[in-house]
Design a protein around this nucleic acid. Structure first.
Length: 570
RNA sequence: CGGGGCGUGGCUCAGCCUGGUAGAGCGCCUGGUUCGGGACCAGGAGGCCGGAGGUUCGAAUCCUCUCGCCCCGACCA
């Protein structure tokens, strides 16, 4: 294509509202334009990149035998009511009514619709396994769209669903997806991590997330360089960093101390001159078990934070919330800043394993402005021990003791073993080999297409703009004649353009009547991986080939250039 | 939904406090000179100052309401 005919509205100045790199650059490079909060139009360049990403996805999905569908985005309420997610999705789902006042929604995912197709059509185990997928617009009424294309209200998702007769079948489908996802992200040319994750609202047992490390991300991943261990912060396990001060191991009885005004861990620590690692943090929460709500006391080492996910799975409740100050006063007779396990009212007490084996710690006295010293778990109170804490910097890997780091990441893909959640709630069964009705076991697997694009931009950019991986760049090569009005340069540029095109290279000819500096800057901004400068060196029979990523320039003979580039792009 | 910020030519912003004929740079158009890292000269087009109401002789500017966007938090497959 000839640049002078294209719409590539690059901006010299940085758009005021854009803060994260991918947002700023996708706007500046003319890939996208905003339409509303969390709603974007994809212009020529973005569409080109997105199409390439989707092509890679389709090829790899086909390779594992997945079949492409295209489901309705406009869904009747009934199918969501069956699974219980009409309520469950809350305000994040766009809802609307038709002219007859019937409830509809814009789908944010398609477990329900896929399951409804499967239950109507799948009759026998002989039809399994099936993997069905689609690439489709998803809608989510995000409370706060942000960071350009990172968190939006309308986006493309590749979502696939597997149907198997038994757990072994699901394992195989899941593994196929895991490998396909690895190949997809590798082919897209982006650095990614696979991390163990919590399955959250999707339900089900196992799940892994595919992550790109970027400060713009909203997730935190615990990563061990030495062992390769990586897990979502919510789920990650660790060996806690040792306490800052050794415990006094003598047998002592709890002893009340006056701590006026000291309520937070920090204040108590300062007031008593005792490190936070020798304090017990007491958290009162109201756990929701569905039928009843009960208070639970959770204990953490002073420097640790509770992991919501771990708490939910340890305690076995559906949800929980912090107890209100009034509830706490009613139960403990003291304010939140002075709570502790000794003399606490009767309720389940869970202590994080970092407190196990500790001696003579400081905890609240359940009396305003008083704490207790010499509190020893297991002697002065008896908790159930469990891993409840969130990993913090300084923790080490459980097996090896190797250091762990916490990395900010963006999720680009997620694979789940759903289990029977939807086949049960929606009644999806087939006849097995014994002629008996048996529930189908499912998996679901997603890739955020825009996020792959954003991830690439986040990972590969510099002061000059985007350095797109060749596989998903809008063009692979740009041919830049320094002066298109010079007949010799023009002829050479057109000839090279035609030759590259003939070889199947995705090439752009910058035929604009612009000064060379403008053309160079634009090419670098939009991220084309290779640029061939057709200029003064033509007289010596060579072109200069610049690699965007490394900024290296190689002189290649006029007749060899096309082959040289083709080889580099292979 | 709470907190903060911002809406003025296509873009980045000034002007507002202290009301009195709407500005700059970039971009765009025309002509000319240029042509290896976002050129230069000359001329030109383009804005009911987000919207509504109010105060005033007079409002971009002051007041009230409203809409939108961005950021932080809550929230989040």
């Amino acid at each position: 294509m000839y640049w002078s005919h294209l719409f590539i509205p690059t901006l010299r100045e940085v758009p005021a509202d854009a803060e994260v790199a991918s947002h700023r650059l996708l706007l500046r490079a003319g890939y996208v334009r905003p339409l509303g909060a969390g709603i974007y139009n994809y212009l020529f360049l973005a569409q080109r990149s997105m199409t390439k990403i989707m092509r890679i996805i389709r090829e790899e999905m086909e390779a594992i035998g997945a079949q492409e569908f295209h489901l309705a985005a406009l869904n009747p309420a009934e199918v969501w009511q069956e699974s219980g997610r009409w309520e469950g999705m809350g305000q994040n789902m766009f809802r609307l009514k038709d002219r007859f006042n019937r409830d509809l929604c814009l789908a944010m995912t398609h477990e329900e619709v896929m399951t409804s197709i499967a239950r109507g059509e799948l009759r026998s185990y002989k039809q399994l396994p099936q993997i069905w997928y689609q690439i489709q617009t998803k809608f989510r009424d995000e409370p706060r769209p942000k960071s350009g294309l990172l968190r939006v209200r309308q986006f493309f998702m590749k979502d696939s669903y597997s149907f198997d007769v038994d757990a072994a079948g699901l394992d195989a489908s899941y593994e196929k997806h895991r490998q396909a996802y690895c190949r997809i992200f590798e082919r897209c040319g982006i650095a990614y991590m696979v991390v163990d994750a919590d399955s959250g609202a999707m339900g089900g047992s196992a799940s892994q997330e595919f992550m790109v490390a970027t400060e713009a991300g909203e997730d935190h991943v615990v990563h061990c360089k030495a062992t390769g261990y990586s897990a979502n912060l919510e789920k990650a396990v660790s060996r806690p960093a040792p306490a800052s001060a050794a415990d006094d191991m003598t047998a002592l009885e709890p002893d009340e101390i006056h701590t006026p005004g000291a309520k937070t861990i920090d204040e108590v620590s300062k007031f008593l001159g005792v490190p936070a690692t020798s304090l017990i943090k007491s958290v009162v929460v109201i756990a929701d078990f569905g039928k009843q709500q009960k208070p639970v006391l959770a204990l953490m080492r002073g420097d640790h934070q509770m992991s919501e996910t771990k708490f939910l799975s340890v305690v076995g409740c559906k949800e929980y919330r912090a107890a209100t100050p009034e509830e706490i006063r009613g139960l403990f007779g003291a304010d939140p800043g002075s709570l502790g396990p000794v003399g606490a009212p009767k309720m389940p007490i869970y202590a994080d394993t970092a407190l196990e084996g500790r001696h003579n710690l400081v905890a609240g006295a359940n009396k305003d402005d008083y704490h207790l010293k010499n509190v020893t778990p297991g002697e002065d109170f008896t908790p159930k021990y469990a891993d409840l804490r969130q990993v913090v910097a300084g923790d080490t890997e459980v097996e090896t003791g190797a250091p762990l780091e916490i990395v900010k990441t963006m999720e680009i893909g997620h694979i789940f073993k759903l289990g029977y959640k939807y086949s049960e709630s929606m009644g999806l069964q087939v006849l097995n080999a014994d002629g008996k009705e048996t529930k189908v076991i499912m998996g679901s697997y997603g890739i955020g297409v825009e996020r792959v694009l954003c991830g690439a931009v986040e990972l590969y950019n510099d002061a000059d703009g985007i350095s797109m991986p060749a596989a998903i760049a809008p063009f692979e090569v740009v041919v830049t004649p320094v002066n298109f009005t010079d007949e010799a340069l023009k002829a050479a540029a057109i000839a090279l353009y035609a030759e590259l095109k003939g070889m199947g290279v995705d090439v752009l000819l910058d035929d604009r009547d612009e000064r060379p500096g403008v053309k160079f800057k634009d090419a670098e901004l939009i991220g084309i991986p290779w640029r061939v400068t057709v200029g003064k060196k033509l007289a010596q029979g060579v072109f200069e080939v610049s690699e965007r990523r490394t900024k290296t320039v190689t002189e290649v003979g006029v007749s060899e250039v096309a082959g040289w580039l083709k080889a580099k792009l292979a």
